[in-house]
Every structure is written in C-alpha cells, then in structure tokens.
Amino acid sequence: MSAASASLRLWQQRLFSTPAQTAITLGIAVCVIWLLTPFTRWALVNATWSGETRADCAPGGACWVFIRARFGQFMYGFYPVAERWRPNLFGLVSLAAVAPLFVLTGRARLRLGIAALLLLPPLGVWLIGGGYGLAAVETRAWGGLMLTLFIAIYAGLIAVPLGILLALGRQSRLPLIRTLAVVFIEFWRGVPIIAVIFLASLLLPLVMPAGVGVDRLARAVIGLGLVIAAYMAEAVRGGLQALPKGQAEAAAALGLGYWKTTGLITLPQALRISLPAMTNEFIALVKNTTLVLVVSILDLLGIAQSSLADPAWVGMNMEAYLFAGTIYWLICFALSRWSRSLEAGGPKGH
C-alpha cells in the first residue's frame, strides 16, 4: 500500500468514518465555504494592489493601495521621513546586541546582557527622541508600529524589575514589606488598565512640583509599567513557590545572606521556571499598549483608526483593521509559540 493511499485512509477515518461524522464534516464545510468565498473574493480576487489614489480602486474588492500609500505612517506615525533612519538604526543595534544572547553562554552572556540592559534603553530614547546633536522629534510625532514596540519594551523595562521586587516582597518575612507588596499587587490587578492610563495621564502632572512636566508618552509608559509589574509579580511568585525549600536552606547553611541567597540561588532558578508565564504577561502588555489610544497617543491601532478619518480615503475601515490586526496577531502568536517552547523545554534541573 502506498503512502498516498495510507494518508487518504487516515483522512477518510478522520472525517467520514461514521454517518454522524460525515454530517458534521459536510456541515462545517458548507459554513466555511459560505464564509470564506465572499471574503476571498473581496480580499484577493477583486482586490486592487497597485495604484496611487482611491480612484484606482475597483469597487467590490479590497483597496490595498491604501495600505501601500499609508505604509510609512502605519510603521512610524508622523515621525519625520528624513529622520526615520534613527528608529531603524536603533532597531538594528538592539537586534545585533540581543541576538548573541541566544548563542553565548556563561559569563560572557551575563556581561553582554547587563551591558545591553544598561546602555540600550537610554540610547533608544536619545536616537528616537533626539537632542544632544540630533534634531529633536517630539513624542507626539511618534507613532505606528514603532511606538507600539517602544511602549511595550519600555513598559516591560519598568515592569520586570519592579515585578521581581514585588514578588520577593510578597515572600518577605518582614510583615510590613509583605503587606505593602500585597496591597500594591492586588490594587493594580483589581483596576482596569484603561483607568490606569487615564490616571497616569491626569495625576502624574498633578503630583509633581509646579513647573516639572512629565511627557505625555512617559505617563502612559509609567502607568502601563506599574500595572504590568503587578501581573509580572504574580508570574514570578509562581516560580519562587515552585522552588524546593531546600535550595534556600542549603544556601543559608553555606552562610549566604538574604541578597546572596536570592541573587545567586533562588531567583535565577525561579525566573527560569516563570519565564513562560512572564512571556504571557508580556503578550498581554503588547495587546494592552493599544489602550494608549484613549489619551490620543497613536500607536499602530491608533494610526489605523485615525487614518479612517481621511476624506481622500473614505471607507477603508476593513483594510486598515485587517492590516493592523494581522501585525498584532503575528507578534503575539510568535511570542506565544516561544513561550510554549520554553514550557516544553522545561526548567533545567535543580
């Protein structure tokens, strides 16, 4: 029996082995065809791919010309075209710095990791925002996918260290610190993120001394960072609790103090266990960056939304949403696959 007929048999068994199964298969097939045919006709068959303006687009099909014309905005927002090399350069430098982390091992990896963590964030703010020799670009000109990634990464840079501290605080033997950590975590986890972004954008300027302004974008990043830190803390706590008690006890028996036990023994192992959970929180963060829309910061979804108001391109709702949605889906799907592969790899023995 050939391989082809064997696979045919397998599919026959999967789809048509009993009358009931056959009925379900046919029913689903009809529904899928009924839904997909008009969609395919709209998105591919009748779609217009090349041209310059709305007038080039055939009716009854998607107008991908719109995406092509707006591509730069979807990626960079209203960032000046002549300066777009700066975020590009920062992206390249970050990739070049982060890629070796997956190859290197041991001390070299640790050193590179710490150097990247200390140097890249300020470099990014300088390159994208300007000043000190570069033309300044105000944050209200930033936008698009660039801004989505910027907010996700910088809010993550607040959330991860703060989350680790909170998780350690929640496990602390000092009652006051434990209480503070619990209150902080449960408060931020209990309120909607949209309210937190409003809160950050309204209250941060209010509680600063008169004359000290906090940038609009920075407020949103801080607000998001604080909430996600509370969720990160719970992810890290899972790892800390999964660790056998003997690890900390052995470290104490060797005469290590609290910070050495934590930094050298328990935390590295706990982080490895909780990395999949932390990645899931990061996915949630990427999805929640869209909420900056409510304080008129135009990330990828915000740019897509605001592009609908252009009188030269009326009725491009579906095209804009489909494009933005696909990008979000690709980012989050890749991250969730990575998280799942980490989970399958499992923590390396202790």
Partner: peptide
C-alpha cells in the same frame, strides 16, 4: 471529530493573539 476540533483550535489561536481593543473598534467601526 478532527475538523471540528481544528476549527475550535484556530478560533482560540486567532482570538487570544489579538488585542481586545481591536475587536471593540472592529465591531463598532467595521
């Protein structure tokens, strides 16, 4: 049923990897 399970899996993967705000705007403006 293989097909039923595959479609349910596709739905879950689709929905979980897209921001909720996207769905809200999509249902409203789309």
């Amino acid at each position: 049923h293989w097909l039923l399970s595959a479609i349910a899996a596709a739905y879950v993967e689709f929905v979980r990897n897209i921001p909720l705000l996207f769905f809200v705007l999509f249902w409203y403006f789309g």
